[in-house]
Design a protein around this nucleic acid. Structure first.
Lengths: 328, 328
DNA sequence: TGCGTGGATTAGAGCGCGCCAATCTACTTG
DNA sequence: CAAGTAGATTGGCGCGCTCTAATCCACGCA
C-alpha cells in the first residue's frame, strides 16, 4: 500500500479510499491509483483490513459432512448469496461428532467471523448458546430452545400433510410409514404421520415400520410388508433412499408400483428424478434455505433485533410411483 | 490478551507463548494463564495472529458447485484432513463461470491463504499461472501445461482400460460408447475408448454416440441404438447418469440388461449403489483425491520443491449390469 | 564467593490496514 | 475580494497479535 501510494504520488489514506471504492475521490486520482495498484500487483490484505475495521466480511458455516448432498445443497445456497454480496465462507465440518463440531465452531470464532450458520448441529445447546452470545448465529434444521439465534426449519408437519392429502385423495386408506429413526426429521415425520392418519379417521389403518434413512432399511421394510397377510396400498418412506429400497424390494418380488402399491419418498434427491425411478416425493428448497439463512444472518449482523424463526414450506412433487389403489 | 496478562500477572508475550503451546514455559505459569484465559473467555484473534506471523493456517478451495456431489466429496476429503491438521478452509465457488471463479480466487488471495486448491478449474491457464506465482497451488482434475502447480488427476486411460478388459474378457466385441462431450474427462474417456478398441483389434466394431453427462443423453442414446438394425452387446457410458438414462431407455423398450446388453458406467456415484440399479462402474477415490491435494499443498508450503503430478488410479466395481453376451 | 549456563520471561517494534480529525483546495456568493 | 462551503486529501494512531533480542533468574561448579 505504501508502495502504491508513493508510486502514485498520493498518501496511503487515499489509496485506502480508492481500494474501498469510497466516494469523494477525484476521478483523476482514482484511476491513477488503480492503474498503479494493478501494475504493481497490489492486493489489499484482508487480514489487516479486518483487524483495523473490526469487520471480516466472512461468515462461518458449520455442517456435518460435505459429502452428504443434503448439506452440500444448503452450503451451495449460502455460498451463492455470499459471493453475490461479497462475503466469504469459512467452512468447518463436524464429521458427525459433536466434539469435532465444537472444535470447528471455536476455530471459526477465532477468525472473528461476522456470523455463523449452523447446519443441523449436533452440539449441546449450551455450546450453541455460548456462541450465540459472541456472534450472530443462524441454525438450519434444528430447533433448540433457549438460544438467541435465528432459525430456518422445515415444516415437516406440512410436508407430511401434503403426502397424506395426496394419498388419501387418490383413495388410499391402508397406509404404512417406514420411519427414519432418530435422524433429523425422522421423529417429526413419524408423529405427523400418525396424527394425520388419526385426523383423517384412518388411525386404525396406519402402520409404522421402524427404519433409518438408508436404502437398506427400505429393502428390509419391503420384506417385512411382503411377509404379512395383506399389503398396504401405499407406503410413505422417511426419505428417498428408503423409498428406493422399497422400490427395489417390491420390484424383486414382482409387486407392481404403483399398480399394487403406491410409494412416496421425501427429499426429492438425485434419485427421485431418474426417469426409471420417477418417485413421487416431497421437495425441500435446500438452496433457498441456505440463502435464507445467510439473509437472516446478515440482517442480524447490522440490525440488532430479536431472533426470528423461518418455517420453510416443502412442496409435493408428483411423479410415477403413486396412483389410485386397485379397484378405485 | 492484555487483560489476561494483567490478570495472570505476566507479560503479554508470555500469554502469547502459552496460547501457541510453545515449549519453555513453566508449568505453573502455563496453567495459570490458561485458567485466566478460560475464565475471561479469551479467544486469540486469528486475524491479528495471521497478520503478525504471516501465516494464516488457512487454505483456499475453489470449486464449481458445492451442490454437485462430485465436488462435495472432494471438498469433504480436503476438509477432513484440514481439520486434523488444524487448518481452516476458505471456500469459493465458481457457479460454472470462469469469471466468477476468477473473482473467487482473487478474494481468497486477499485473505492471504497459505495455498489454494483448484478443483476442475475453468479459468484460463494464465490466471492460474498468475495465482501460482503468488502462492502454492494444487489443481485437481484438470491438466494445464506451463503452470508451476501440483496436479492430482485421474488416470482416465486406466479407468477405460479396466472397463474394456472387463467387457472384452466377458466376450464382448461390439461395444458402444456414449461420450461426455467436452465435460471434464469426456474427451479423455472417448479417446481412450477408441484407442483401447483399436489395440484389441476391435476398432471396426467400436461405436461412439455423442452425449453429455446427463441422464437425458443416456436416454437419447438408448433411442438411437434401438433404432439401429443391430444392438451392441455392451455400452460404456461416460458416467453413471448417462448409464442410468440408458438403463431406463432399455428397460422401457423391454431390452434386458445385462441379458441382451451390458452397461458400464463411470463415477460410482450414489445411484450406482442402489440395489435395483446395481451398476457396474468405475470408482474414483474422490475423498482421497481431496486429502492428497491438501497433502501436496501443505508439503509445498513448507518445502520449496518442483511441482509434482499425482495420477490417481481408479478401480472397477463389478455389479449386476454386465454379463457375457448372449451365446457365450 | 563469583561466574557461567540455559531455561524462563519480557520489552518493544512491527504486521498492513481503517478511521478520525485536521488540513487543503477549488468554487460560490454577497 | 474576502469569507464561506463542500469536497478532496492527509497524518497518525491503534487494531491484537508474533517475533527478536535482551534481560532475568536459579543453580551448579570451581
Amino acid at each position: 500500500m505504501e508502495d502504491v501510494a508513493r508510486e502514485a504520488g498520493v498518501s496511503r489514506a487515499l489509496v485506502s479510499l480508492v481500494m474501498r471504492s469510497q466516494p469523494n475521490v477525484s476521478e483523476k486520482r482514482r484511476t491513477r491509483v488503480l492503474e498503479v495498484a494493478n501494475r504493481l500487483g497490489y492486493r489489499p490484505n484482508a487480514m489487516a483490513r479486518s483487524l483495523a475495521s473490526r469487520r471480516t466480511k466472512t461468515v462461518g458455516v458449520v455442517l456435518d459432512d460435505l459429502r452428504n448432498p443434503f448439506f452440500g445443497e444448503i452450503a451451495g445456497g449460502v455460498e451463492e448469496l455470499a459471493s453475490e454480496l461479497g462475503y466469504q465462507l469459512l467452512l468447518g465440518a463436524g464429521a458427525r461428532q459433536a466434539r469435532r463440531e465444537r472444535a470447528s465452531l471455536a476455530t471459526l470464532l477465532e477468525y472473528r467471523v461476522d456470523g455463523v450458520i449452523l447446519v443441523s448441529p449436533r452440539m449441546r445447546s449450551a455450546d450453541i448458546a455460548a456462541a450465540a452470545a459472541e456472534v450472530p448465529v443462524v441454525m438450519v434444521g434444528r430447533q433448540v430452545r433457549g438460544v438467541d439465534a435465528d432459525l430456518v426449519i422445515i415444516d415437516e408437519h406440512h410436508g407430511t400433510e401434503l403426502i397424506l392429502d395426496h394419498l388419501v385423495g387418490l383413495g388410499h386408506e391402508r397406509i404404512a410409514h417406514v420411519d427414519g429413526g432418530k435422524g433429523a426429521g425422522g421423529p417429526q415425520r413419524r408423529s405427523a404421520f400418525l396424527r394425520g392418519m388419526r385426523d383423517r379417521r384412518l388411525g386404525a389403518r396406519a402402520r409404522v415400520i421402524p427404519g433409518d434413512f438408508t436404502e437398506e432399511a427400505g429393502a428390509a421394510a419391503a420384506r417385512v410388508l411382503l411377509a404379512e397377510p395383506e399389503l398396504p396400498t401405499a407406503v410413505f418412506a422417511a426419505n428417498d433412499m428408503v423409498a428406493a429400497g422399497l422400490l427395489g424390494g417390491f420390484d424383486q418380488a414382482g409387486v407392481e408400483v404403483p399398480g399394487t402399491v403406491s410409494i412416496v419418498g421425501y427429499d426429492n434427491n438425485f434419485i427421485a428424478h431418474l426417469a426409471h425411478v420417477s418417485l413421487t416425493t416431497v421437495d425441500q428448497p435446500r438452496s433457498d434455505m441456505g440463502r435464507m439463512a445467510l439473509e437472516l444472518l446478515l440482517d442480524r449482523i447490522d440490525n440488532r433485533r430479536p431472533s426470528v424463526t423461518r418455517l420453510v414450506e416443502p412442496t409435493l412433487v408428483v411423479r410415477s410411483t403413486t396412483a389410485p389403489p386397485r379397484g378405485c
